[in-house]
Design a protein around this nucleic acid. Structure first.
Lengths: 212, 212
DNA sequence: TAGATTGTTAATCGATTAACAATC
DNA sequence: TAGATTGTTAATCGATTAACAATC
């Protein structure tokens, strides 16, 4: 639910999917020093139609101006706020295997205000080692950590079989959202938000499209 | 385009998106030794409605049987074939940074018949080293390699700024599909199939949903 | 045969595009 | 003011769900 003109409205999921893309393209326009842009031009860059772009944005407010278009910086800041980027978020990560380590070493999320404040694994050989300055903790400490530090976002990068159990722990500890890299559809109470990164599915879709 | 009853039909993109999920859930049913399943039960597992599941599958053929449901193994094999999983595919990867290394070390794709046959980087310090038994080649050899080995799938795991140029090289060399991990929308001729893994976008969507 | 469950058509729902008055 | 471009309503398109005859 989002407020618009004092009324709370539900944002269609198709719109939510596109918001990060808009944000990313605005960032790159800002970098290039573009000050204003029309829905037509911006739509071309972002790969959507101009009316769709206007419809999408108007779920959140009237950011444009007739005869002028959109101010890039204003719109960028507005979208940052809408997506909760301006404030810092702390996350925990479980599973420091291939993908987990890549995430710990990545700066992409940090740049947008998402920080890993602790990382966990079940393997005693990994517990205690440091990755990118973060010491790997034992997964037995996960629930306490989440509760004590009021962590909202949990990242799951463990093997398929272990993922549901980790999700359960996170939910019990009060997590609000899970960013899941394990190839399973987690069963959680519906108030828990879940975003899946099922990488292999992307590859299979690509393969299908090539053969089609 | 896909053949059904001798006629070639176009598969809706919404259906294509769900196919890998069906495949994955069938695999797990097979593992559990389930022989047959109704659209109702299977829909519940895969998180879709029973009629939707039936509609989706019927784009490719009539795999079910009235009063019985679907034979798990038959359906699994049919979907494997539809998605081109039964045959082996060779891929090249460019960029052995965080995410690139994670992909090289992963066994998830290999299990489904997708092999990395060569990996490339532009950094001279990385060229020559071995990762999971594969020697990193200089990116100058990329085009020749793709052409000579008739590689169909290219994986891009380089930074944002470098991604488009790598995509151009791949396209010139005759690649058919690109699996892109860089946070850009690549501009390629429309016959080139592209699947994006824009990880950060998933995190932003999650953040939005939590705050909503 | 009776019960179960499919395949498929028709109805509904949601998302996209077209069109244009409002207005900067 | 005239030209450009928005915000928004209406029309279209595509995807999902409901319903049920067909049939194993």
């Amino acid at each position: 639910m989002v407020e618009k003109n004092g009324e709370s409205i539900v944002i269609p999921s198709a719109v939510i999917k596109r918001l990060p893309k808009y944000h990313r393209n605005l960032e790159s326009l800002l970098d290039k020093g573009v000050e204003r842009i029309s829905s037509r031009e911006f739509g071309k860059i972002a790969g959507v139609s101009a009316p769709q772009l206007r419809q999408d944005l108007n779920h959140f407010g009237n950011f444009g101006q007739q005869g002028y278009g959109y101010n890039v910086e204003n719109l960028y800041n507005a979208l940052s706020k809408i997506m909760g980027i301006e404030k810092k978020s702390n996350m925990v990560l479980v599973g420091v295997g291939n993908i987990g380590q890549a995430l710990v070493n990545s700066t992409d999320f940090t740049k947008r205000g998402f920080y890993l404040s602790a990382i966990f694994d079940i393997n005693p050989r990994l517990v205690g080692i440091k990755i990118n300055g973060l010491e790997v903790k034992d997964v037995s400490q996960l629930e306490n950590y989440i509760t004590e530090h009021k962590i909202k976002i949990g990242v799951i990068a463990v093997p398929e079989k272990a993922a549901q159990e980790i999700a359960n722990k996170m939910v019990r500890a009060g997590i609000q959202g899970i960013w899941n890299f394990a190839p399973v559809d987690l069963k959680c109470p519906q108030e828990i938000k879940i975003e899946n990164e099922h990488l292999t599915e992307g590859l299979l879709r690509l393969s299908f499209k090539i053969d089609e």
